[in-house]
Amino acid sequence: MSSWRQLELHPRIVNALQKAGVQSVRDALCMSGPDLQRLTCLSASDVRRLLTAAALLCRARRPQPVLAADDFGLRLSLGCPVLDGLLRGGLPVGGVTELSGESGVGKTQLALQLCLSVQYPARHGGLDSGAVFVCTEDTFPSRRLQQLIREQSRLRADVPPHVTDSLQFGDRVYVEHAADLTSLESCLRRRVRLLLARHLVRFVAVDSVASLFRSEFGLSDWLEKTKQLLTLSSTLHHLCRQFNSAVLCINQVTDIFSGSEEYMGPPSSTVRPALGLAWANQVMVRLMLRRLRGTVSRGEEDSALRRLEVVFAPHLPRAGRDAAVWKEGVRGLDGADAPLG
């Protein structure tokens, strides 16, 4: 990292540091003043000067007043006004969002939909960039993606046709496969990172985070599992922050046994997201997709009724919207199309 020469310090101080073997600015900041003084044999005021310079180098900018106009927080639209309304505009850009739900409820569908909506220009809720989809459990559902692309004009009736037609959706969805944790980690750190760095993508979907952890660790490996979870989450945080992108992690669910894990709040169903508290602490927005009883129909099409719920988020209330999965994608239901019992 940053060497001592970068700092505007007296050569005497720099020499003392090098002699004492204090390698980097980070090392110095992790030492207490008296420790540094003993190691480097500098006087107290020199050590103070040194620490201030080091701290200034580490700090990107001093505390700034918040401005309403600043940026209201960039959002990635889901491509449906009802669901965007629930999320106050969409997925937060620069944060990790988790989507959990039972198998077959439509998690992957929603992730695919986001892979397309990210490609729209900003005025249509997108980020004008591509998406990378990391599969860990299944093969990539490319046929469904093609179908979604064909039906885009139907889902996004609000977007002028010439905009939708001009987008080459299929070319801007990158697919990665990772069969174990090591390859997932290296995929994120190398390939996904490269895609983000070249501005080819600004949306990362991981489908799913749970499968690898659930297959690779038994109950006794609890500590190692936590460690790996934290490593993965810090990689994801780093990526979405550095490249100002949105990250969606798909998670599985586990059954709730009576009395267990009641600390996580009133259950909205009989299941809850997998991977426990260690993972939950790392997530900014937690969403859950549930299957409800009943179906909705629209012309020829039928869909099982679902509900997208916000479990927690710093800027959203606990709420939900009924939704259905159609040919063109996942859409929230407004008052008009009421579910049939």
């Binding site: 900041l29 992790c30 701290a55 580490c58 700090r59 505390p63 700034q64 007043p65 918040v66 922050r241």
Partner: peptide, 26 residues
């Protein structure tokens, strides 16, 4: 007003523990 309230909040984002230590030092 809302604007004055926001402008009286000095925000700083620390990305790791070293940045936090640096911020607290300053």
């Amino acid at each position: 007003t809302v604007e004055t309230i926001l402008s009286n909040i000095f925000m700083v984002r620390c990305h790791d523990y070293v940045e936090l230590l640096a911020e607290i030092y300053l």
